[in-house]
Design a protein around this nucleic acid. Structure first.
Lengths: 153, 153
DNA sequence: CTTCGATACATGCAAATGCATCTAGTTTGG
DNA sequence: CCAAACTAGATGCATTTGCATGTATCGAAG
């Protein structure tokens, strides 16, 4: 039933994940210690960023929750903080009275752009020297394929 | 000074990092919700795992801290919890009176192995169907290259 | 329409986290 | 040898997080 290499396939998958995870830790550690995130924690920036990328400018909280490694309750309170600082706005979803639509305020959008510029530079300085453009494209392709597969259950 | 594609190089690096990060979130979310981590949080398992991989069986706290996305104080208290559960042991480093060497107890080693077996299966179920063996090897190579470059400053 | 289960988000509370700081051991420069 | 600067790790305290649960809305079955 198992192919002769079943156990080595398992091992390969584990080592691949381990390497992906450690590289993420290494990069994230550098990024979040930079000056870009003195004014706003990375996780809060990430919510602003996610909103800024969304074409409609509005996202449901549960949609955001899929992108972020936070429990539902933690996200709810993170949004409380952003709202208290005037960076985002909660609106009741028109088609679903239970839902909440989140959108950037003008101040939120500007802060996102300001931090984003710096952040993108930091990323380029870390990733640029590490991998060729070709390798980056391949890494992008593979991680996107992995993400899509995992998200699809 | 800038090549004509300097801005697209920056953009590529940013998109690559974004994709790597989101894939990590997606996989980690699945993994940590599994039954393997009911008895021990992922971050605590990760410390046991790191110790189990180390040839000497002992690691300094600051070495562990490099591998994990936690502040020094949080790691210190995470180790408090592991020690209180009898899973690890603190020893003063022989060559440096300030340092603390951490090692697995028998119970810690066994718990790590038990969780590890389940964990590795979960990883294989997520990563295996997503990428071919060849793709996994390439992803492993690229993330390791990235990690090494970032760690090297 | 009504009832019952499911879903979206909020909230009380205990636990985990990070920042600043403290203690203790180490290294350096005189 | 000593003092000052540095490093490893621990701890007080305020913030953040997650679990369990609460509230409101939705959708399906009768």
């Amino acid at each position: 039933m198992s192919s002769p290499s079943a156990s080595s396939a398992v091992r390969l998958a584990a080592e691949t994940w381990e390497s992906l995870f450690r590289s993420q830790v290494a990069v994230m550690r550098k990024l979040q210690s930079g000056p870009a995130f003195k004014t706003l924690p990375v996780k809060e920036y990430d919510v602003l960023f996610t909103l800024s990328k969304c074409p409609s400018g509005q996202l449901r909280l549960n949609e955001i929750n899929d992108k972020v490694l936070l429990s539902q309750s933690s996200l709810s309170r993170l949004v409380d903080r952003l709202e208290k600082r005037g960076l985002v706005e909660r609106t009741t979803a028109p088609d679903d009275g239970r839902g909440v639509l989140l959108s950037l305020t003008e101040a939120g959008s500007e802060l996102q752009k300001a931090i984003g510029r710096e952040h993108v530079r930091d990323i380029a300085h870390l990733v640029g020297p590490a991998l060729t453009a070709e390798e980056q494209r391949e890494l992008l392709r593979l991680t996107e394929k992995l993400r899509a597969s995992v998200a699809g259950h």
